[in-house]
């Protein structure tokens, strides 16, 4: 295999990794907020279900969850899905797992905001929705940013777990080439890729933190 060929394959893997990364965040960041609402809800059954959901997501390996999402429909319900489902399953698996982590981060962020903020808003006549989205949410975002950064950095590395579904992301491809060509080079390239990716992530998050440092 020529170097150019190898780089081409790795590049397509990088693209797939970026795709998993972006889509996981697009779905799990808002989903986490919904789960956090459920977790803090006054409705007991909803509270219980979200609590159970979070504990399962955090208490079992992500790799296992990916396998369940991929094979579950067939083994549990006999539904046959095309191989294109591989990608969908990867995104679903990652999104529901990360949503659970984000939910807990959001929840602690929301609960750390002084109750006086809710009360001041109520006396000023804001509705519950206005209070949450104008007053509480922006302050929560600032508080949870460092914890979210940690999760996002973990996600960059976790994307490599998609190899269990033989989904052709960066790590899957690097491993294949390394095995076929008996060379460490692709794995080294992969490592460098994750590292640089995370430098970028850290840079972006630092920028966001700076932008929100105008108060407190």
């Amino acid at each position: 295999m020529s170097t150019a060929n190898m780089i081409g394959q790795l590049a397509s893997g990088m693209l797939a990794t970026c795709e998993i990364f972006v889509l996981t965040l697009v779905f799990s960041l808002p989903l986490g907020l919904l789960v956090a609402f459920g977790r803090m809800s006054k409705i007991k059954p909803l509270q219980f279900i979200t609590k159970l959901y979070i504990s399962i997501m955090r208490g079992t390996p992500l790799m296992l969850q990916l396998l369940v999402v991929y094979f579950g429909p067939y083994y549990l319900f006999g539904i046959k899905l095309s191989t294109g489902y591989r990608f969908t399953a990867t995104i679903i698996g990652f999104a529901i797992n990360y949503a659970a982590y984000f939910a807990e981060i959001y929840r602690s962020g929301i609960q750390s905001i002084p109750y006086g903020q809710w009360e001041a808003a109520k006396v000023l006549g804001y509705t519950k929705n206005q209070t949450f989205f104008k007053i509480i949410f922006p302050q929560m975002v600032k508080r949870v940013l460092p914890s979210v950064t940690n999760e996002v950095i973990t996600l960059v590395k976790d994307t490599s777990l998609a190899f269990v579904l033989a989904y052709a992301e960066m790590f899957t491809i690097a491993k294949q080439i390394a095995a076929a060509q008996t060379t460490m080079m692709p794995l080294f390239v992969a490592g460098l890729f994750y590292y640089i990716f995370n430098l970028l992530v850290a840079g972006v998050m630092e920028y966001l933190e700076k932008r929100m440092s105008y108060y407190q």
């Binding site: 002084p114 006086g116 903020q117 009360e119 001041a120 808003a121 006396v123 000023l124 007053i135 922006p138 302050q139 600032k142 108060y215 407190q216």
Partner: peptide
């Protein structure tokens, strides 16, 4: 209207 002991201004 109500003025609180610890102000409760919106910090952001």
């Amino acid at each position: 209207g109500l003025v609180f002991q610890n102000f409760n201004l919106f910090p952001h």
